[in-house]
Design a binder for these strands. Sequence first.
DNA 1: ACTTTAACCTGAACGC
DNA 2: TGCGTTCAGGTTAAAG
Length: 276
Amino acid sequence: MPELPEVQTVVNHLNKKIVGQKIINLEILQEKMIKNISITDFKAVLIGSIIQNIDRVGKYLIFHLDNGYVMVSHLRMEGKYLIRDFEDIEPLAMKHVHIIFTLEKFNLCYHDTRKFGTFTLYESSDFLNSKELSKIAIDPLNDGFDYEYLFSKINKSKKPIKTLLLGQELVSGIGNIYVCEILFSARVSPFKLGSLVSEQECKLIVKESKRILKLAIEKNGTTVSSFSFDNNHAGTFQDFLNVYGKQKLPCSNCNSKIVKDYISKRGTYFCNNCQK
DNA sequence: ACTTTAACCTGAACGC
DNA sequence: TGCGTTCAGGTTAAAG
């Protein structure tokens, strides 16, 4: 499901709704989702703590607690947070709810059809050095993500530019939808090897990354099948997509057909005429 | 050490 | 209607 703009949308929403509330109780229905700590310890740390704010590192959600710990949550493909009134527990809607945080005002339900999502708990003093977060690279919206940085990271690589941008250790938060859109707008073929991407093309990739991701955040993300926040409120950036999911449709720039191909087994959408 | 594949899960869409 | 196959916004352990 979620890439940087969708995760940021969730962060923005949760910051409006749950900050300052105490975790009264915790119900864990899928124990395997908690990765680095026992269920007993996970509960012991979280219950009674107050949520101070929610932050984002790449595609990870960081819940800062008032007791010196952070809870790290990754939504993977389909994870989402639902806010449900206490009296609102319908069995059908709860089918794929795996964790229920009982807060002071309502239940915060973690819903995940495919059960790919993960939860970890760290001391707040060094969570950035954790196994999962230590390898997350610079955020594309950070000023440090510039063309010199990108060029220096890719100019000796024999991997396709799409694969490089998709990996979280070079730049974080970009996933399959936005990498396709960024490369289309930058007019660079997703197959082009890193070593063949020019400085000028790096400038365009960086510029378009920032433009597209910022706009997508303004539009509350992209909903292609299931992404929603605020209980089924969908994002609207899908109305601005140029290539993702547009195979056989005319290119918005040149009218030739958008092509779908595969890179590392992942759907890759592009215009063979515009992107070189 | 580095690169590719398989696995983790469920459900929707499609072909026969 | 039903059954088998493929695909999905991600990451990572295992295999090559």
